[in-house]
Each structure stands twice: as C-alpha cells, then as structure tokens.
Design a protein around this nucleic acid. Structure first.
Lengths: 262, 262
DNA sequence: CCTTTCAGTTAGTTA
DNA sequence: TAACTAAGTGAAAGG
C-alpha cells in the first residue's frame, strides 16, 4: 500500500544551486529555527574538538543537519561520517571575515564543538519532511531466546528449559539449559545466522565445563536457521546435535506473544 | 587558505525537483555506472535482509549512494542511518510493476540485500565530487607523555616511571625512564606519528648511553600509534620492543585527568 | 581470509 | 544518573 506522504505541504522548502554565502546563511538560519532538515553540498573544512579533536582539510562533502539537531558530515566515499554530532546540538550560522559560511554545532555533556567552514556551496536544500514509518528489526538472537522460552517445543517436543543465560563455569553464558523428555540435560546454543565453527566450539566448551558436574547424560544442541556445511563433520565428531529453526517461525511466536500481552 | 575545489568541472551533474520515475531511473543508472554520488530525497519504504532482516514502512528519507558503492538511508532525525549497506555493493535500479522506483543494493560476504522503493522523489541530485582533504585526529607528543605518566599501564602492566624528559648522558632527552614488573630498567621513546628509523636509532643511542651505567637488565621500548613496516627488522635486530598505543586512548586519559582536576 | 581489538563508537536497559 | 551491554556494529591491524 503505497501511501504517498506528500499530503499537500511541500517537502521541498528550498533548493538553491550555487547560492551566494549571503543567501545561504539566511536560508539555513531560517531552517534551523523551524527545525527543518538542511542539506548542504559544498567545499568545506571541518574542525572538531571534544572527547578528541580533529581537523579535516578542504574538500567536497555533504552536510546534513537534521530536525533533532544532529549533524553529519559525509565524504563522497565511506559508510561512516567523517565528522558528526549527536542530536541536541545548538547551532550558530554566520559568514566569517574570510567570507566563508560557518556552521557551528555545540553539544554539552560532553562539551563538544564542531565547526564547518564552507568555501563554496554547490547545493543547498531545506526539507520540511517528517517520517512516521514504523521500523522493525525482525528477529534478534535475544528474540530467538524469548521465542524458545515461550515455546520450548521449538527446540524439541517436551523440552523443559531450566535456566537461560546462566553463567555455568567460566566459558561465558549458556543460552538455554534444560532437560529433554528422557531426563537428559541439554545445553542449547542459539544462533540467528548460519552456525559456523565458532558456535560449535563454543558449545563444546560449555559441554566440557558442565559434563563433570552433572550425574545425568548431557546433550549439546545447536539451534540456528542453518548449519554451515564445513562444520558438519566437526559437529558429528564432537557428538553434538543440530536443530534447524527458521527465523520466520520465531517471528510468528513472538508476534503471538505480543498479542497475548495486549 | 581556502582552496576552492570547483576547478572547472561542475560538481552538480544533475539536480531534479520532483522528477518522474522514468527520469529518475535513467539518471540514477547513469550516475551509478560512472560512480558518481547519488542523493535522493523522497517517500520510500525499505526492506533489508542479511545478518538480520528489517522492514521500514513508508516515510520521507534521504538516500545517499556513494562513489564506493556504500548506501545510507537517513530519516529526518537521528545520528544513525536507519538502513545502510557498506561499500562495495552491486546495484540494480528499475521501475516496478507498481510504478515505484526500486533501488536494490547487494553485498556479498556476508550476503545482504537492501531494497528501497520510492513512491515519490522530491529531489534527485547527482554529484561528481571528489575529496582529497586530509583528516587528522590530534594528540600532541607532550599529551602522550602526560597520559603515560598518569597511567603507566599504557606502557605495560606494573610499569613504574622514575623520570621523564631527563637528560641522561649526551644524546638528548629520554622521554620516560622507568622500571618494569620484574625490576628491569626501561627506556621509553614516545612518538605520536608512526615510528620510523630515526626513532629506533634514537632509542638505540639512549640504550648505549645508559647500558654501562646501570647494574640491572635494560629494555628499550618504542611507544607509538604505529611502527613503520620497514623498521621492524632493525628493531628486532637491536633487541628493542614496540608497544602500539592509539592517540584516542591517550586523549581519553587526558580527558579523564581534566575532569578529575575539576 | 580470518581473528582480535578499538571507536569522538551510539544506543538501549537497568540499578 | 551511572554502569553495563549489544550492534545488521564498522574499520584497522595482525596472523
């Protein structure tokens, strides 16, 4: 259902190509007051001082100032911003005595200041956009654990969880520890991605830790959407087991839980 | 020195307000082929599937596709992108049977796919920009020395500084002189830049000066953010050691000192 | 190519 | 508010 968000009010408040510094500064000041989103593409240098300090020499970048007062400076390559400021900044915009456009964003706690000097602005755009779209990350490993605890049959019929995320020894945390239908103890290692060598070895470490301390047969079970081909022999050799469970199945269980809560 | 990077070739290859989907798709395809940077502001929804999976319902966002094939989807608020893809993606751009603009970015290793569907494009811009500006995170050598004196464990566990910047002989000043956990004397040479031959030879001079005048084993240690590859053999041959310490780590210690003082 | 470690990490949760 | 932990962590360095 493609609900167009345009809704009468124009998202494009301003688009200026190669504006003068005077034009730019007044446009930006107005936008920041109204908490609109400001996008600047131009040649700039950046000074940062706070937890660390940095300088970025002249070059072409994107500056994005968001509605909540967060700041991002992006170079033409790279996933990460080269400089940034988290939300809640206070801004100062002016033309310097060198006729450069200066955007200063200050954050308190910790006190951090970022100064962006534009030599040339190629593109300046102000956007009055909002975004109510819901974001959902479908299944995390924690989600999987919750799903298993709510529905232990996912692991296997008549499986009873006894503890989870319990520190049993010194090799970390066991995802789920329980008893199967025959009274055997079971250590369950959960992975939301195809289980690889590290998952098998982790489970083996848990097994070694626990084995001497229990008086019942002990099983080791990896639960994941898939088992990487290359670790199958290792799994068998160590006498461990694998149970495939789809993320979708987990998601459905979590959804039903959510419904119950409501 | 404001070196304008405009340099004759226009950074603004294309700026289109409210383009049709047909216009948009051909513009974007052309830009991606040439590894230009593409900026889209519009109403979109996003599906991601890979290590996790997520959905983002319709709303107004920025899409930035960079020259190295990285992808960022930014909402009007928040420091972090709501969806993304690291550099090296392969792209597919098309108009769907629902007349939506679809940008698909695929990453291998791990296999991850992000699909962005635009319902409406408010602004589409293609930028042929490069950025050679140097980026530097700063901590001075004096700062480093202060950090080590305040936190000798930076050098190594149970290291005790005895003197610093002390003229010990005639070959200059030893940065830090101290004792290790086993009672050996240690000469520490600090560099805030990757340590090269001159640093190693300097340390060697100090070693020669001191060696005859102490009745304990003597170690020589270079502390720097990095050791230049080519001097590694020399370092080993002279029986000297190297300990990497990041400037950021030093800066953090200095900051905590500053806070304590206040 | 894999593992380990660091980050101006950021962000969320809990005591 | 501080401490702790996870992240689709990403990125760099070393083996």
């Amino acid at each position: 259902m493609s609900m167009n968000n345009f809704q009468g009010n124009a998202p494009l408040i301003s688009v200026q190509k190669n504006p003068s510094m005077t034009e730019a500064v007044s446009t930006i000041q107005g936008a920041l007051c109204k908490h609109d989103v400001v996008l600047i593409v131009g040649c700039c240098k950046v000074d940062y001082d706070g937890r660390a300090s940095s300088t970025l020499d002249w070059g072409n970048r994107f500056l994005l100032v968001k509605a909540d007062g967060s700041v991002l400076v992006h170079r033409p390559t790279g996933y990460e911003p080269v400089n940034w400021q988290p939300s809640g900044c206070i801004f100062q915009v002016e033309i310097t005595d060198k006729s450069e456009l200066r955007v200063k964003a200050t954050r308190k706690q910790p006190r951090e200041v970022i100064n962006i000097f534009f030599d040339k602005v190629y593109l300046l755009s102000v956007l009055g956009i909002t975004d109510e779209g819901e974001f959902a990350l479908h299944v995390s490993e924690l989600d999987m654990k919750k799903a298993f605890l709510a529905n232990p049959a996912l692991v296997e019929e008549d499986f009873k969880p006894l503890s989870y995320e319990k520190n049993w020894g010194e090799s970390g945390f066991i995802d789920i520890f329980g008893v199967d239908s025959k009274g055997n103890f079971v250590i369950v290692e959960i992975k939301r991605v195809p289980a690889g060598k590290e998952a098998v070895l982790q489970l083996e470490r848990y097994m070694r830790e626990v084995k001497g301390n229990v008086n019942r047969p002990l099983r080791g079970l990896i639960v994941a959407p898939a088992l990487r081909r290359d670790v199958q022999p290792l799994l068998v050799r160590l006498g461990l087991e694998y149970k495939p469970v789809s993320l979708k199945r987990c998601f459905e269980i979590l959804r039903s839980l959510r419904v119950k809560k409501i």
